[in-house]
Computed example of a mutant assay.
Amino acid sequence: MALFPEQRKRTSAPEFMQAPGEITFEQIRERAYDLWERNHRPDGFEIEFWLTAERELKAERDNKQNQLVVKQGKSSPSRLISQKDLSTHA
């Protein structure tokens, strides 16, 4: 399997050098590899595992960011509802 070599080399930059919330190629590759292994290493599913890994990492990142917003005492942007929206649904 070309995307998931048995000998994985860690080449990504340290976390402190990455932009906040950035998902790196290396993180996606490692997650995809883990998914592939957990599913008994099937052939021909590289793209599906890659996309699943990317989707999972983005969801985890978004949840983490939303938790930080809530901890800081602010409303989550995705949960803000304007008065206009409320009046149209009444």
Results as ranks from 00 to 15, higher is better:
residue 34 D to K: 09
residue 22 E to D: 08
residue 76 S to Q: 06
residue 46 E to H: 06
residue 75 S to I: 02
residue 48 E to H: 10
residue 65 Q to I: 11
residue 36 W to R: 05
residue 86 L to Y: 07
residue 87 S to E: 14
residue 57 L to D: 12
residue 30 E to H: 02
residue 46 E to W: 00
residue 50 W to Y: 14
residue 75 S to Y: 05
residue 42 P to L: 08
residue 88 T to F: 11
residue 23 I to D: 01
residue 22 E to R: 04
residue 77 P to L: 01
residue 58 K to G: 02
residue 1 M to Y: 03
residue 44 G to F: 07
residue 13 A to W: 00
residue 20 P to C: 00
residue 90 A to M: 06
residue 58 K to H: 12
residue 57 L to Y: 09
residue 35 L to S: 02
residue 41 R to Q: 12
residue 52 T to L: 13
residue 61 R to F: 05
residue 80 L to F: 15
residue 78 S to Y: 03
residue 23 I to F: 01
residue 89 H to D: 09
residue 1 M to E: 03
residue 63 N to P: 03
residue 82 S to K: 07
residue 79 R to I: 00
residue 86 L to D: 02
residue 85 D to T: 15
residue 82 S to Q: 04
residue 3 L to R: 13
residue 4 F to H: 07
residue 55 R to D: 12
residue 14 P to Q: 11
residue 79 R to F: 01
residue 86 L to P: 00
residue 78 S to F: 01
residue 40 H to Y: 15
residue 62 D to M: 00
residue 40 H to L: 13
residue 4 F to K: 02
residue 27 Q to A: 15
residue 18 Q to Y: 04
residue 63 N to E: 11
residue 62 D to H: 00
residue 9 K to Y: 03
residue 60 E to M: 13
residue 28 I to V: 15
residue 82 S to I: 04
residue 67 Q to C: 07
residue 53 A to K: 00
residue 36 W to L: 06
residue 44 G to D: 07
residue 27 Q to S: 15
residue 31 R to Q: 10
residue 69 V to P: 01
residue 89 H to W: 10
residue 61 R to L: 11
residue 86 L to R: 11
residue 43 D to R: 10
residue 14 P to L: 05
residue 7 Q to N: 11
residue 13 A to D: 02
residue 39 N to E: 11
residue 65 Q to W: 00
residue 44 G to V: 10
residue 83 Q to N: 15
